[in-house]
Amino acid sequence: MKPRTEILISGFGGQGVIRMALILGRCAVDQGQRVTMLKSHGTETRGGYVRAQLVISPDYVDSPVVENADLFVAFSAPAYRKFYDLCSGKVLYDPEMVEDIHDDAADRHVEIPSRALARDHFDNALFANMVMLGALTRLAAMDLAVMKDVMVDVIPRAHEQNLRALDLGHGLEVVARRA
């Protein structure tokens, strides 16, 4: 584990950004890591962007601010535009939400069609965040089994679909190739 892994997740309110970050953070805690998670709220959840900033480290984390993300998940075009410069690592984006991507760093971009996959498999785009979390789990080199345990503990229902959604994201070829 690196001394400090920074993860930034952003999208619109209601897409499950905070829920994703909480599951990811709990997974890291259960694996003995130290974790900070900042969440934006208030007016940002009412139409603007929602943002979660996670820092994971084997040691106590001083600054909880993500200034140089190793992983950035963009669930919306405004979020992508607003935070792109804060990421020097991999950018996971849903092409349905983020159509125009920077062409200067194709190798850092990982296209995850999370909403399309969620609709195809579950007839419901709500599961997109778990597809994305599955992909993120692999790219962050975290333990899928622990992630599943935490997800079941955190989310009260639809466990079967959510578990399959995690598997879907985790098993994507593009993800396996970039992990």
């Binding site: 953070g25 900070t36 900042l38």
Partner: peptide
């Protein structure tokens, strides 16, 4: 920040 932040 300290009130809303999640941490271990």
């Amino acid at each position: 920040v300290v009130a809303d932040m999640f941490e271990d």
